[in-house]
Amino acid sequence: MNEFPTPIATVPSTSNKTGGWRTFRPVILYDKCIRCMICWKFCPEPAIKIVSAEKYQAKNAAIAKLDAPEIDYDYCKGCGICANECPVKCIDMVFEEKLEG
């Protein structure tokens, strides 16, 4: 309980790692990715971060200049919107058990 006389929510929800909900894991195939950020745009968590261009290899020099999407598996629930919306179909949805096995 906090000092307030009524419950006031103050703790960021980031302490709740919703990655554990996931059945299918989206995996970005960076060699195909065009870094259009449509996956980032439609992520309902949001669990797709924007990372610096150099972090991943790119398809070509023009794309390599763009910041890249990166999935935050701590929070990704595996809904698959990113894979469905990806215009170049570079996100695979992989069954988690297989990954663990």
Binding site: K17, T18, P44
Partner: peptide, 14 residues
């Protein structure tokens, strides 16, 4: 922030 409790693919969160 992420970590919320919406269902998978929830449109309301978007």
């Amino acid at each position: 922030l992420p970590g919320h409790t919406a269902c998978l693919g929830c449109g309301a969160t978007l």
